[in-house]
């Protein structure tokens, strides 16, 4: 496993660190601009505080899940690549698949006993090439997506929230039912997550408690997970 010395070298940390820094730099620019324009809009400081609190707690669970997926990537691809790939463009499922395809194409199993420098390098190249599409498409087409959304709403601003609601319902119906129809432990996790969240939402329609708005997603996520492993 000589290649892991290269994979974990300071130069690799530098190359990967620049990419992570770019992600943080963009966020900084956008948040600063959004905060300044929010003052001209009907957005209060309290709303921003609740938004930050809620998205912070909601990010912890999914980030832990990404961390769990990082283990197998770390063993095969080393620290810097795993760290950079999971904070830049890809996702756990994508990265493992791409690294695997790269290694396979050189005739080696990713992380297997015959894993070598060539397979590692092929993995890095395939991970990179396979993910450029997302960034390139959004770099060039995002303003067009805005126009397309207006077309979907028939040019009526009042219908934009319906378009958003349809997109969210469709996306999460797919993502959750895909787990439900596996008929295993994940089915329980998804159904319990759905049930707990639905109960919170129905209760809060009349009670309008702010803590529920902020915590419901995180609580439902962890209750779903805990119930699924008890079974």
């Amino acid at each position: 496993m000589e290649y892991l010395k290269v994979a974990n070298s300071p130069l690799m940390w530098l190359a990967c660190g620049l990419c992570v820094a770019l992600v943080l730099f963009q966020s900084l620019l956008f948040v600063r601009k959004s905060l300044s324009v929010s003052k001209e809009m009907n957005i209060s400081d309290n709303q921003i505080k609740s938004a930050l609190k809620s998205s912070f707690t909601a990010s912890i669970g999914p980030s832990l899940a990404i961390l769990a997926g990082m283990v197998s990537l770390l063993v095969a691809m080393g620290g810097p690549i795993s760290w950079f790939r999971l904070s830049f463009i890809g996702s756990v499922a994508y990265e493992l698949m791409a690294a695997g395809f790269g290694a396979e194409a050189t005739g080696v199993t990713l992380g297997g006993p015959d894993m070598n420098a060539t397979a590692f390098a092929a993995g890095v190249w395939v991970m990179t090439l396979g993910s450029i599409g997302w960034v390139l498409f959004t770099a060039l087409a995002t303003p067009k997506l805005d126009q397309f959304r207006n077309v979907l709403a028939g040019g009526r601003k009042a219908l934009l929230p319906i378009v958003s609601a349809g997109a969210m319902c469709g996306a999460f119906a797919y993502l959750s039912l895909d787990r439900v129809f596996r008929f295993d432990i994940q089915t329980i996790a998804a159904v319990v997550g759905f049930g707990v969240m639905a109960a919170f939402m129905i209760y809060n329609k009349t009670k309008k408690k702010q803590w529920i708005k902020e915590w419901a997603l995180t609580i439902s996520m962890f209750v779903g997970m805990i119930v699924s492993i008890i079974f």
Partner: peptide, 14 residues
């Protein structure tokens, strides 16, 4: 199992 629970909860909310 966090992920399936998260997806279920998101759909429940929507």
């Amino acid at each position: 199992n966090i992920l399936p629970a998260l997806f279920g909860a998101m759909f429940g909310q929507q």
